[in-house]
Protein backbone atom coordinates (compact mmCIF):
# COMPACT_ATOMS: atom_id res chain seq x y z
CA UNK A 1 0.00 0.00 0.00
CA UNK A 2 2.91 2.33 0.83
CA UNK A 3 4.35 1.82 -2.66
CA UNK A 4 1.04 2.86 -4.20
CA UNK A 5 0.41 5.84 -1.96
CA UNK A 6 3.88 7.39 -1.98
CA UNK A 7 3.99 8.54 -5.68
CA UNK A 8 0.44 9.82 -5.36
CA UNK A 9 1.32 11.86 -2.32
CA UNK A 10 4.37 13.35 -4.04
CA UNK A 11 2.29 14.28 -7.12
CA UNK A 12 -0.28 15.94 -4.86
CA UNK A 13 2.45 17.86 -3.05
CA UNK A 14 4.14 19.21 -6.17
CA UNK A 15 0.80 20.22 -7.70
CA UNK A 16 0.98 23.05 -5.15
CA UNK A 17 3.61 24.68 -7.39
CA UNK A 18 0.82 25.48 -9.86
CA UNK A 19 -0.83 27.83 -7.37
CA UNK A 20 1.12 30.98 -8.28
CA UNK A 21 -1.21 33.98 -7.96
CA UNK A 22 -2.23 36.19 -10.89
CA UNK A 23 -1.29 39.86 -10.70
CA UNK A 24 -4.89 40.94 -11.09
CA UNK A 25 -6.70 43.44 -8.92
CA UNK A 26 -10.09 45.07 -9.30
CA UNK A 27 -9.30 47.81 -6.81
CA UNK A 28 -9.86 51.46 -7.71
CA UNK A 29 -10.34 54.77 -5.94
CA UNK A 30 -13.05 55.87 -8.39
CA UNK A 31 -16.52 56.25 -6.91
CA UNK A 32 -19.52 55.99 -9.24
CA UNK A 33 -22.53 58.18 -8.52
CA UNK A 34 -25.80 57.99 -10.42
CA UNK A 35 -28.08 61.03 -10.53
CA UNK A 36 -31.82 60.52 -10.12
CA UNK A 37 -34.82 62.78 -10.33
CA UNK A 38 -36.45 63.80 -7.07
CA UNK A 39 -40.01 63.17 -8.17
CA UNK A 40 -39.70 59.93 -10.16
CA UNK A 41 -37.25 57.06 -10.10
CA UNK A 42 -35.48 57.85 -13.35
CA UNK A 43 -32.03 59.09 -14.33
CA UNK A 44 -31.45 62.83 -14.46
CA UNK A 45 -28.90 64.47 -16.71
CA UNK A 46 -27.29 67.53 -15.17
CA UNK A 47 -24.84 70.02 -16.65
CA UNK A 48 -22.03 70.70 -14.19
CA UNK A 49 -19.76 73.72 -14.22
CA UNK A 50 -17.26 71.63 -12.27
CA UNK A 51 -16.86 69.44 -9.21
CA UNK A 52 -13.99 69.97 -6.76
CA UNK A 53 -12.54 67.41 -4.31
CA UNK A 54 -10.51 67.93 -1.14
CA UNK A 55 -6.84 67.03 -1.40
CA UNK A 56 -6.41 68.04 -5.04
CA UNK A 57 -6.51 71.16 -7.21
CA UNK A 58 -8.00 69.19 -10.09
CA UNK A 59 -11.65 69.67 -11.00
CA UNK A 60 -13.91 67.01 -12.42
CA UNK A 61 -16.71 66.88 -14.99
CA UNK A 62 -16.04 70.48 -16.00
CA UNK A 63 -18.79 71.48 -18.45
CA UNK A 64 -20.12 67.94 -18.67
CA UNK A 65 -23.77 67.01 -19.04
CA UNK A 66 -23.97 63.63 -17.34
CA UNK A 67 -26.26 61.31 -15.41
CA UNK A 68 -23.41 59.26 -13.94
CA UNK A 69 -20.42 60.81 -12.13
CA UNK A 70 -17.02 59.21 -11.70
CA UNK A 71 -15.17 60.88 -8.81
CA UNK A 72 -11.91 59.76 -7.16
CA UNK A 73 -11.66 59.48 -3.38
CA UNK A 74 -8.57 60.96 -1.74
CA UNK A 75 -6.01 58.14 -1.53
CA UNK A 76 -4.18 59.89 1.30
CA UNK A 77 -7.18 60.30 3.61
CA UNK A 78 -10.17 58.38 4.94
CA UNK A 79 -12.69 61.07 3.94
CA UNK A 80 -13.16 63.30 0.89
CA UNK A 81 -15.24 66.46 0.56
CA UNK A 82 -16.78 67.28 -2.82
CA UNK A 83 -18.37 70.52 -3.97
CA UNK A 84 -20.77 70.36 -6.91
CA UNK A 85 -21.22 73.51 -8.99
CA UNK A 86 -24.20 73.03 -11.30
CA UNK A 87 -27.13 75.00 -12.71
CA UNK A 88 -27.61 77.78 -10.14
CA UNK A 89 -26.65 75.69 -7.12
CA UNK A 90 -23.66 74.63 -5.05
CA UNK A 91 -24.03 71.41 -3.08
CA UNK A 92 -21.54 69.51 -0.96
CA UNK A 93 -20.99 65.88 -0.11
CA UNK A 94 -18.58 64.35 2.42
CA UNK A 95 -17.90 60.62 2.14
CA UNK A 96 -15.90 58.47 4.53
CA UNK A 97 -14.28 55.10 3.79
CA UNK A 98 -11.80 52.61 5.15
CA UNK A 99 -8.44 52.28 3.47
CA UNK A 100 -7.16 48.73 3.32
CA UNK A 101 -4.40 47.11 1.33
CA UNK A 102 -4.01 43.59 0.00
CA UNK A 103 -0.69 42.02 -0.91
CA UNK A 104 -1.18 39.67 -3.85
CA UNK A 105 2.48 38.57 -3.81
CA UNK A 106 5.84 40.36 -3.52
CA UNK A 107 6.18 40.10 -7.32
CA UNK A 108 2.73 41.63 -7.91
CA UNK A 109 2.80 44.10 -5.05
CA UNK A 110 0.12 45.59 -2.82
CA UNK A 111 -3.15 47.00 -4.05
CA UNK A 112 -5.16 49.53 -2.05
CA UNK A 113 -8.81 48.84 -1.39
CA UNK A 114 -11.48 51.32 -0.35
CA UNK A 115 -14.48 49.92 1.49
CA UNK A 116 -17.14 50.76 4.09
CA UNK A 117 -18.17 53.80 2.03
CA UNK A 118 -20.55 56.05 3.98
CA UNK A 119 -22.07 59.51 3.60
CA UNK A 120 -20.79 61.66 6.48
CA UNK A 121 -22.69 64.82 5.54
CA UNK A 122 -24.38 66.37 2.52
CA UNK A 123 -26.49 69.32 1.41
CA UNK A 124 -28.32 67.20 -1.18
CA UNK A 125 -31.92 66.30 -0.41
CA UNK A 126 -31.25 62.57 -0.59
CA UNK A 127 -28.11 60.48 -1.01
CA UNK A 128 -28.29 56.71 -0.86
CA UNK A 129 -25.33 54.33 -0.52
CA UNK A 130 -25.74 51.43 -2.95
CA UNK A 131 -22.36 49.62 -2.85
CA UNK A 132 -19.90 50.25 -0.03
CA UNK A 133 -16.81 48.92 -1.83
CA UNK A 134 -15.03 50.76 -4.61
CA UNK A 135 -14.09 48.26 -7.29
CA UNK A 136 -13.81 47.93 -11.04
CA UNK A 137 -17.06 46.39 -12.19
CA UNK A 138 -19.23 48.04 -9.56
CA UNK A 139 -21.83 50.02 -11.50
CA UNK A 140 -23.05 52.28 -8.71
CA UNK A 141 -21.72 53.32 -5.29
CA UNK A 142 -24.03 56.24 -4.53
CA UNK A 143 -27.36 57.52 -5.76
CA UNK A 144 -28.10 61.26 -5.49
CA UNK A 145 -31.60 62.64 -5.93
CA UNK A 146 -31.67 66.22 -7.16
Amino acid sequence: MVRLLFPGMLALLFSACLDDPDCVSNSTNIMRISLKRLDVDSARTVKFFWISASGTDSVFHQGDSVSVLRLPVNTGATATTYKFYYETKIDSLVVGYRRKTKVVSPECGAFPQYENLAVLSTSFVEVKVITTQLAIGVSKNLEIKL
Binding site: A53, P72, G76
Partner: peptide, 11 residues
Protein backbone atom coordinates in the same frame (compact mmCIF):
# COMPACT_ATOMS: atom_id res chain seq x y z
CA UNK B 1 2.48 47.01 4.88
CA UNK B 2 4.40 50.11 3.93
CA UNK B 3 2.42 51.34 0.95
CA UNK B 4 3.83 53.56 -1.76
CA UNK B 5 1.17 54.72 -4.19
CA UNK B 6 0.72 57.37 -6.81
CA UNK B 7 -2.49 58.84 -8.12
CA UNK B 8 -2.92 61.22 -11.07
CA UNK B 9 -5.04 63.59 -8.95
CA UNK B 10 -3.72 63.18 -5.40
CA UNK B 11 -0.04 62.66 -6.20
Amino acid sequence: VNVVSSDPFFG
